[in-house]
């Protein structure tokens, strides 16, 4: 009986530790700027990229904001994958440490309603729906269709001295 009680107590006291770890993991999952999926839908109009991008958030609106940030982030740091109708696009910043090297600039750039918003247009009809709107533990995962003003984004980063101009190498 005593052994059973001890086991029960251990179980009760260890539960918060186990769950807090999973909470931390989930928090990290939500907040990670690198943990998202993005696909190129079609070749965009001149100077733009047309992508479908996923975002996480506690509410649908938060997830949409995150997805927009993700789209711009991908264009700057990750590049865009190829699809059946479009070639892959390399990242604007080729330097893997570019974010860390310009931490203050990018923290400001990606703050909600920050400068990034000028380079992204959501083209989803209404709100994300169906399989593009997933209820996940403690939040939502949504996919939105987005047009990124790729050329304008590059020019902005060049003007701000974050990346070198395409002509600078010649």
């Amino acid at each position: 009986m005593n052994r059973f009680l001890s086991f029960l107590l251990v179980l009760i006291f260890s539960a918060p530790i186990v769950f807090s770890q999973s909470r931390k993991e989930r928090k990290a999952l939500f907040e990670s700027m690198q943990n998202f999926e993005i696909t190129t839908v079609k070749v965009g109009t001149e100077g733009t990229k047309f992508v479908k991008v996923w975002g996480y958030g506690k509410k649908v609106d938060d997830a949409i904001v995150q997805a927009k940030k993700n789209a711009v982030y991908a264009c700057i740091f990750r590049g865009l994958p190829a699809s059946s109708t479009a070639n892959a696009t390399p990242a604007i910043c080729r330097d893997a440490n570019a974010y860390k090297a310009n931490q203050d600039y990018f923290d400001n750039f990606f703050q909600t309603a920050g400068p990034y918003i000028d380079f992204v247009n959501m083209t989803t009809d209404g709100v994300p729906s169906g399989q593009d709107r997933l209820k996940v533990k403690k939040g939502y995962k949504v996919a939105i269709y987005v047009q990124v003003m790729f050329d304008n984004l590059r020019k902005k980063l060049e003007a701000d001295g974050i990346v070198k101009g395409l002509s600078s190498g010649f």
Binding site: V41, K42, V43, G44, T45, E46, T48, F50, N121, T123, T124, D125, Y145, Q147
Partner: peptide, 14 residues
């Protein structure tokens, strides 16, 4: 075509 297809086409090169 749905409205979503229409919006997608508007921002695609094709």
């Amino acid at each position: 075509v749905t409205d979503q297809d229409y919006f997608n086409a508007q921002v695609a090169k094709v």
